[in-house]
Design a binder for these strands. Sequence first.
DNA 1: AAATGAATTTAGCCTATGCTAAACATTTAG
DNA 2: CTAAATGTTTAGCATAGGCTAAATTCATTT
Lengths: 222, 222
Amino acid sequence: MLSEAVQDYLKAIYKLSRAPETGRMVSTTLIAERMGVSAASATNMIKRLAEMNILEHRPYQGVELTPSGIHMALEIVRHHRLLELYLRQALGYDWDAVDAEADRLEHAISEDFEDRIDEALGFPTVGAHGEPIPTKEGNIAETDYARLSELTAGQRACIRQVSDRDPELLRYLDQHGLVLGTEIRIAEKAPFSGPMRLDVGASGEQHIGLEVAEAIYVDVLE
Amino acid sequence: MLSEAVQDYLKAIYKLSRAPETGRMVSTTLIAERMGVSAASATNMIKRLAEMNILEHRPYQGVELTPSGIHMALEIVRHHRLLELYLRQALGYDWDAVDAEADRLEHAISEDFEDRIDEALGFPTVGAHGEPIPTKEGNIAETDYARLSELTAGQRACIRQVSDRDPELLRYLDQHGLVLGTEIRIAEKAPFSGPMRLDVGASGEQHIGLEVAEAIYVDVLE
DNA sequence: AAATGAATTTAGCCTATGCTAAACATTTAG
DNA sequence: CTAAATGTTTAGCATAGGCTAAATTCATTT
Ligand SMILES: [Mn+2]
Ligand SMILES: [Mn+2]
Ligand SMILES: [Mn+2]
Ligand SMILES: [Mn+2]
């Protein structure tokens, strides 16, 4: 069994390797930053992960997960996302509280537990923040959402996914009616990376900053 | 926060100190045996627990939990027993499977999670195997059950609690109708620590060995 | 009272995971 | 094209939690 630390690094590296900002190779510094450890500690762990054939390490270049590493990462991600959804739907957690709880539980549950909550949730394919849930076989749906920040005035869109990294941001989104499935129209986009003015259905008109708009993923309508 | 290892030692020591077989002082060997570690490892951990004021260590004599140690132990026991009941009632786990799962989850859940499953279960006071569930304030009901093995022919009793240590035993009990709340009558008790013959309501007549009878706790009727 | 044997502790070692400081490699700027 | 800045690795160290083997203490038996 992979240790909790190994699992957390693995998940972090997987997510970084999928982020649009990052290339295929993930740097030591980025990993260290995300994990909240020193670069030296990250290097140390990277070498052990390479030893375990979880990833390939090109010194001074970065790391890339092996197919087997990706598979292991998806198992952890599946645990995490099923747990988040279960906490939300079965236990009434708020949107912004599920991530921290799932981050600990994901290492403690058995495959049996995973299967039981999967069934209790009706075999969901999308998580609490709109992320695709990997299948038990290790497949994950590719999504092709646009960032809200990329849209221009006049466009309409439907919120499909939000970043789950910052609970405060999630609370902000919730208060402004920017939840999954909401349809919005960009009323105005200020130049020079300025704020956006949105028509948010029942929640009326909202002004949001660029950082917020970058954390919202949408399907552009028509 | 107490580490997982510390929590597990603490829970084990608490339970050993409450077992009727053990005196007030719990020996190093007993702790080592229960934890599945060497005696030297147990000594090592005992010294750290003493340093943390979780227990008092009388070298070569044994250990005794401090009031604060008992309080911490009861928090872990509460987590464990609430989780067992939740796994059983909300997720349909079998009687014999809940302990292993709860043993890992007990270290991962938050106080919020604890409160939510407590509420979902209707604030139960008794766990999946009949054990009293400590309150959030750190109180636990004293029970005064007899072991089924102590009863004699002709007596009637109601099953109130069973040992949760051995999944195989739990499966055996389940198959023979010896579940919580079942009323039984001792039909015969063979001498020299022999087996017992029981009338078990709907499940008819059952013959059980002494080891089984010692793991069943009952209220003697009238 | 001394000897034996069981329980316990000590000593010395190991792995996992973190750290800081120093050394080294790569990238960027002059 | 070299030099500074930046990123990465290495070296050396720490703590938590395990282990075995040896030493020590306590209880029991002669
Ligand atoms: Mn999450
Ligand atoms: Mn985690
Ligand atoms: Mn249990
Ligand atoms: Mn445990």
